[in-house]
Every structure is written in C-alpha cells, then in structure tokens.
Design a binder for these strands. Structure first.
Length: 274
DNA sequence: AAAAGAAGCAACCGCGTCTCC
DNA sequence: GGGAGACGCGGTTGCTTCTTT
C-alpha cells in the first residue's frame, strides 16, 4: 500500500453518475442469470460501462430483491438508535440487524433524521420526549413526507394498504400478454404509484418459477405461462444484447413478429420501474 | 411565479481487511 | 510471510426535489 493503490478501474472509460433503467435492467438480468461471483469482471460481462464497485453498490443498495424500501418504521428507527449506541457508526453491523435495510440507507436516515431527532430530544424533558415518541409513530405512518413520496426510491410504499394494492396489481401478471397489456398502461395513475422497488415478486415473475403469481385455478396453465414468461424475458435479453451467444434466440428474435413489441416492452418496463 | 435555501438520498472515493497465490 | 487483487465499509459529495420567502 505504501506504493499507492492502483485504481479499481479506468475512470475515463467508465460511466458515472445515476444509473439508467437500461443499465439497471442489464445488471439485474445478468446477476439473475449468472450471479455475482466477481464484481470486477461483471460490468464487462454484463455489457455495462461501469466500475465493478459501482455495480456492487447499485445492486446491494438498490436492485437486490430483498431490499426493503420505504419509510423506516418507528420500531426500526428505535432499533437503529439503540444499535448505534452499542456499535457506533458501524452501519453494516446495524444493517445486519435490520433485514432488508442497507448500510447506506441506514447511514442516510441517521444523518438526515435520527441525529437531529436525538439532539432535539435531549433538549426536551422526559414528558415531552415521551409525547414526541408517540408523535413520531404517527409521523412515520403518514410522514412519508413530501420528499419521501416523490423520491425515486419509492418511499411511498410503506403501508399495508399500499402493499395490498401492489399485490393486487401483481395478480394481473398472469400471462405474457396480460403483462404486456399492463405495461402498456403505465400511464395509469395507480401504476405510476409503483415505484422502483424490485419487489421479490418481480424476481419471481421474471424467474417464472414462483407460484405466488399463479393462483390455484391457474396452475393448469403453468407450463404455457412459464414458456410465455421465459419467452418474454429472453426477448428482453435479446433486446439488450445479453443473449449474444444464443443463436437460436437470435434467430427467433430476428424472425419474431414481436420485434416491434419488444422495444416498446422494454420502454414500458423502464417506465414501470420508474 | 421565481429564486434561494434546506433536505433527502444515490453514488463516489479511499482505506482497511480478506483471500489467494 | 508477503504481495497483489478483490471486496466491503464508512465518510463525503453532489444532484434532485421540496419548502420557504
């Protein structure tokens, strides 16, 4: 180390700044298919002009299916405060105690909310502090503060009602064609409410292997639907150049009458996730 | 309605640690 | 044992959006 550290990548050859939907999708697709054994080589293999570190960060903090987004509950905030008292700024350690939360997110919440809250709390007497605590619970349920609801991260998905709404929405994902239709209706307000949570269910849907989308009465259709889903997913992969080695898919892609649809599909997908 | 300031958060940077050879 | 490469972590930055004036 005394000789200095070699940069992890050539900064002049990598893209920086906010991730585009296309990049996100490439990363998701790649990891979904091949995993992430080597972050350094991943961007190249996935066709991304990004630094491996950047990919890792994006995945861990944002795209990972088990990332829980939305406002922190009062319980979570209390947990963070307590854990911070024990661990200090060991954000990853704190994050490990809060399933679905990332160290980066916790760190941000600490610096933007909790630190201030704590310092103001110390200026209050015990009674005031107690009443503030109950207020905070209310705030957290509605707080979603204007910022939260506008936030790209989709912090407005927090209540059970919202979850129910989302689940209801996902129930429509029964077939390729239905999904396509739905994607084409992204200008619907309720769908625009769907923010960029890569919900585990989306993964399951992409994967085509989870039965949670398939209501019992639809099980009989499972096989054909899986084919449809697979077809759809591969279509996107072709579209993104992730299926370069698969000649069969390429031929199918060339011949397919859905070529026009696929680009609009991708476009719709991008709209959907944002 | 517009400008300035504040807040929130995604992403970057650099260092420490781990692992492999 | 030591060097190199890769990963993970914590601090920080800077952009976007909201709020206030």
């Amino acid at each position: 180390m005394g000789k200095g550290r070699a940069p992890c990548c050539d900064k002049t050859k990598v893209k920086r700044g906010p991730w585009s939907q296309d990049e996100d999708f490439k990363l998701i697709s790649f990891i979904h298919k091949y995993g992430h054994e080597n972050w350094r080589s991943l961007p190249k293999q996935a066709g991304l002009l990004r630094c491996g570190k950047s990919c890792r960060l994006r995945w861990i903090n944002y795209l990972r299916p088990d990332v829980k987004r939305g406002n922190f509950t009062a319980e979570e905030e209390e947990t963070i405060i307590k854990l911070h008292q024990s661990f200090g700024n060991k954000w990853s350690k704190i994050a490990s105690k809060l399933p679905g939360r990332t160290d980066n997110e916790i760190k941000n919440v600490w610096h933007t909310h909790l630190k201030k809250r704590l310092s103001s709390d110390t200026n209050l007497n015990a009674d005031e502090a107690a009443s503030k605590g109950s207020l905070n619970e209310e705030e957290n349920s509605q707080e979603s503060s204007p910022n939260a609801s506008m936030s790209f991260a989709g912090s407005n998905i927090s209540s059970k009602d919202d979850d129910a709404q989302i689940s209801q929405t996902f129930e429509h994902f029964l077939t390729y064609s239905e999904f396509t239709e739905m994607l084409q209706e992204v200008d619907k307000p309720e769908l625009l409410e769907m923010t960029f949570d890569i919900d585990p269910d989306i993964w399951s849907f992409i994967d085509g292997s989870n039965s949670s989308f398939q209501q019992p009465e639809n099980r009989a259709l499972q096989e054909s639907e899986e084919d449809e889903v697979d077809k759809w997913f591969k279509h996107l992969e072709c579209e993104l150049g992730l299926e370069e080695n698969d000649n069969q898919q390429q031929q199918q892609h060339k011949q397919g009458t859905e070529d026009e649809n696929s680009s609009s599909l991708l476009e719709s997908y991008e709209l959907l996730i944002h």
